[in-house]
Design a protein around this nucleic acid. Sequence first.
DNA 1: AAAACATGTTTCCTATAGGATATTGGAAGA
DNA 2: TCTTCCAATATCCTATAGGAAACATGTTTT
Lengths: 239, 239
Amino acid sequence: MSETVYPLAGNTPQRKGLRDSVYELILNMLMTSDIAPGTRLSIDVIARDLKVSPTPVREALVQLERTGLVTREALKGYRVAPPIHSGQLEALFDARLVLECGATELAAGHAADVVPELDATLEKQRELGEKVRRAFAAGGPAPVDLLREYFAVDWQFHHLIFEGTRNPFLLDMSEDISIRVHRMRQTVNAGVTDAPDAVIEHGLILDALRNGDGDAAAAAMRDHIEKVRERARQDTAAR
Amino acid sequence: MSETVYPLAGNTPQRKGLRDSVYELILNMLMTSDIAPGTRLSIDVIARDLKVSPTPVREALVQLERTGLVTREALKGYRVAPPIHSGQLEALFDARLVLECGATELAAGHAADVVPELDATLEKQRELGEKVRRAFAAGGPAPVDLLREYFAVDWQFHHLIFEGTRNPFLLDMSEDISIRVHRMRQTVNAGVTDAPDAVIEHGLILDALRNGDGDAAAAAMRDHIEKVRERARQDTAAR
DNA sequence: AAAACATGTTTCCTATAGGATATTGGAAGA
DNA sequence: TCTTCCAATATCCTATAGGAAACATGTTTT
């Protein structure tokens, strides 16, 4: 009975339960590949594909439903949530303005802690932005992986500011916003060529934080988000 | 192709399945009765109590976990989340300041739509506040149901402002905050005797909105929340 | 020919069962 | 007396099965 052989470094990613594994798998699938909105996410089909029973899949979908990536209709199943259309896009930027400007002001209270991290992140963003610029200058296909990495670092700057507030509630909300922003980038392919602009604007925010000027930092953040909004508008108009 | 058949007024309240029923039952249980934090929420026990199978209970708990009311440890089960202690209480008010002041400013853009509803709600709050005052003046035990009703109307004022933004993202976040505020009221028993103050402060916000002055409304909201924070501080200090 | 009905299939939803893991209690030893 | 070990129980986690609703298809009727 006691077959308790200690697996040692035997990687057991199921150590955290199948539910979380399935959750991350579906989340990655939704984030990376472009799946048409409205696509049915059949529980049984996913369970068969992943060689697991429907129960963990069901729980993972409940968790995903709360994020807004999938929608559920009682007795009809789950579907991929509709994309963000222009009206909601404006609302998303309004929400970001409210949240991030306030967060920036609060983060200024812990400027000494957050500035170094922001500095390192901005430097990474600068390097990656340069790589992206070169890749586009060289022509060829869009460097998907590189862009994904750049976007991740770009968002990490904003995320660090939320962490800098030392406020768990705002941090939770930033998670909600994060997923929606990523989803927006799938539909509005903005931010491809605006890397230099974003780096400069992030630099202005960082400078204000370095001076401990919360109001100026919040104003710089407002300016940044408004400019991103404008670039997104132009992108949707050109599409 | 054109399969957009609008079935009814879209209102199908009895079509929600067991999962949502269980969710609402547990939510109400956590909201109303005072349950000690850390209490184990056994899936099987709940299932037996509610005469259902563990599966819907499990899904309801996954949903509750996302709200922060319960915590989960893999292979160890669910527990009632710890209460809000003083440090987090300050953070909660900071988050409210960020969210609600921004929301108030945005709601001012739709003042014509929201002012009537706010007016009616404030009137209800005034009446209930008076009832509460009389009940306390008469002595006797705390009128639990009456207080619950008063708090509901009090929060409805704030909720209507979130709705007034016409911003689904901010509205979602307000739901998250709402649960935490209710939970705070369980621990910090503030707001019992401050009904007149709250009515006056809400009135100031409403006046500013009636004038269409977004900045003044946001300032009034900031003033209100700061005063609530101060009253909560005094309450925790006196306890 | 178009609409309405009936039937079969798929899928969701709930219930039950079994394996794996954590917790609890007591006994043996230092 | 305290610590350590071990066994028994309770609970969680996953898998499987059956009933109910929704979807799709083919037939009948106007």
